[in-house]
Nucleic acid binder design. Sequence first.
DNA 1: GTAAATATATTACAAGCGTAATCGATGCTG
DNA 2: CAGCATCGATTACGCTTGTAATATATTTAC
Lengths: 124, 124
Amino acid sequence: MKEISQAELEVMKVLWQQAPQTANQVVEQLADASQWHEKTVKTLLNRLVGKGAVSFEKDGRAYLYSPVLQQTEYQLRESQSFIQRVLSGRIAPLLAGFAEQQQLKAEDVAELKQLIAKWEQEQK
Amino acid sequence: MKEISQAELEVMKVLWQQAPQTANQVVEQLADASQWHEKTVKTLLNRLVGKGAVSFEKDGRAYLYSPVLQQTEYQLRESQSFIQRVLSGRIAPLLAGFAEQQQLKAEDVAELKQLIAKWEQEQK
DNA sequence: GTAAATATATTACAAGCGTAATCGATGCTG
DNA sequence: CAGCATCGATTACGCTTGTAATATATTTAC
């Protein structure tokens, strides 16, 4: 699977929320959110099909698009490559930075604790 | 400050390890690690200067290069933008993915615990 | 059934990127 | 001092990306 560009990612997000969707449904959501021209969105859809990240089936004159690449899979892959590439494999500095910026929410901390508990279980 | 590309980042990493360095010192380290041609590395150095991420001072015929952008600053900025763009602002899923892949090390967990403790202190 | 609307497909085009080669200046060597 | 070696600067070139416009095929509306 080829790399997905930033603009293409926005299109994927729309499809991840709901699928399948026609090109026009996708266009409408992104016209609101991103000020993108219809033609631009359709180009992006096309490129995503070319990259194998999105598939479509014909529904009369229009197409119905669906994501092939799943969001969790994408997030995991990107996270791993990001942590290697930018953070040299260490994850804690990222959180430290976040904490400093007061961007860590109670919710996040709760999830972290659970994660740690689970991890410790597995170590036994 | 303009965006730093992936290839440029490798050059920054070398300068973050030690600075200032001559172009040739940088070239040598990257020739080993990345198979890059001398000309390629020098182009990257030049582009980084153009982007304001690296500065130089003349030392006779050669230049001495130093990073202007600091690594921690870069990492923080990139982490924030990554978490927004890819993870929609939630940091926990990233960790969950990591844990699943057994990539969380004892060291990481220790750091995370400390972070949480500190965070809880601050909430009081 | 012919024109207008509308879907996708094809083409466009400038900027950024990866990956160098060439140019021009300066210093080194014999 | 005349060429060679070596800097950094400039130029190159094909690919990707952002951002569309144009072309083509198919419906649908008179």
